[in-house]
């Protein structure tokens, strides 16, 4: 029987409340949201917080709201909320692509976007989604609020720019005209973590060329974006040759490790193939002229 080590528990009802509790109980206090990453780690004693600050009652963190040219998503929005949101699916179809294959429907009832980003597991899907959408993370702390680009949010596996005495409150997604996005994951069985996954977001220029591109990989040993792969697309007219070149460069940028989910060459093949697939689908969704072939 797996049982977490003893800890003290407190429930917060506002952001200010969370920050005060984290400050009062010191470095071994941690917030718990859905608990679907933290509790399993506590049961295995890989995490041993002395205090858990439960943020599930902080209702101000639950919103999903279109606000001018950004979509604001509260840190407590659950996977199920994102999947059920019409506005999310319309503006950022890759979020729905990803959410359909994150864990299973019961886990998705609990896991949150804030917890996903806070966990920063290299196999976690929403980090790649936020990377390619060039999202910003709003972090509240003792000295106020700061807004951090995803590129600066990364600090390596299981580490982020959000310090122990801080709280992720919101994720902001810039809304861009003539854009398209897609995400695809290969998993061994339904509900499992990725063997590998890729995400892409594109914006088209009026003349039918690609104005901006972002490509990211999950569980394939790439932190942040595949910049070389994206760079070959920009300013070009979509073609199957271009897509193939981006796939090749994304695979080159990956550095997967062998584990029970597969060997290195297979995972590198996935980086290439999945990048091509998400690019074709993102182009299609952005309304680009159909890509020829394959």
């Amino acid at each position: 029987m797996q049982v977490p080590a003893p800890f003290e528990y407190a429930r917060a009802t506002s952001v200010r409340d969370v920050l005060e509790l984290l400050e009062r109980h010191g470095p071994e206090s941690h917030v718990i949201a859905g608990g679907h990453s933290l509790l399993p780690m506590m049961k295995l004693r890989l995490a041993r917080p002395e205090w858990l600050i439960d943020i599930n009652d902080v209702v101000e963190l639950r919103h999903i709201a279109e606000d001018g040219d950004v979509l604001r998503v509260g840190a407590l929005a659950r996977h199920a909320d994102l999947l059920a949101s019409e506005v999310v699916g319309r503006l950022f179809p890759l979020v729905h692509d990803a959410e359909k294959v994150i864990a299973d429907p019961v886990v998705r009832n609990r896991g949150t976007i804030g917890g996903s980003l806070g966990q920063a597991d290299p196999a976690e899907d929403l980090t790649t989604v936020c990377d390619v959408l060039r999202a910003q993370v709003v972090i509240a702390g003792p000295s106020g609020e700061r807004v951090v680009d995803m590129a600066d949010f990364h600090r390596g596996p299981y580490e982020t720019a959000c310090e122990q005495n801080e709280l992720i409150t919101e994720v902001r997604f810039p809304i861009r005209a003539r854009s398209g996005s897609a995400y695809e994951k290969v998993e061994r069985r339904v509900g499992d973590w990725a063997v590998g996954a890729a995400g892409a977001a594109l914006q088209m220029a009026d003349d039918g060329t690609i104005a901006d591109a972002a490509i990211g990989l999950t569980a394939l040993g790439l932190e942040g974006l595949a910049t070389d792969a994206a760079a070959v697309l920009v300013g070009q007219r979509p073609s199957e040759g271009l897509v193939a070149e981006a796939g090749r460069l994304a695979a080159e940028a990956s550095s997967p490790v062998e584990d029970q989910r597969g060997p290195v060459d297979y995972k590198r093949h996935l980086a290439d193939e999945l990048t091509r697939r998400v690019l074709r689908r993102a182009l299609d969704r952005a309304g680009a002229t159909a890509v020829q072939g394959g």
């Binding site: 528990y9 718990i32 608990g35 679907h36 509790l39 399993p40 858990l52 439960d54 599930n56 019961v106 886990v107 009832n109 609990r110």
Partner: peptide, 10 residues
Amino acid sequence: VKSCTALAAM
């Protein structure tokens, strides 16, 4: 909800 992954307290 998977009750092995929730605290009674929560």
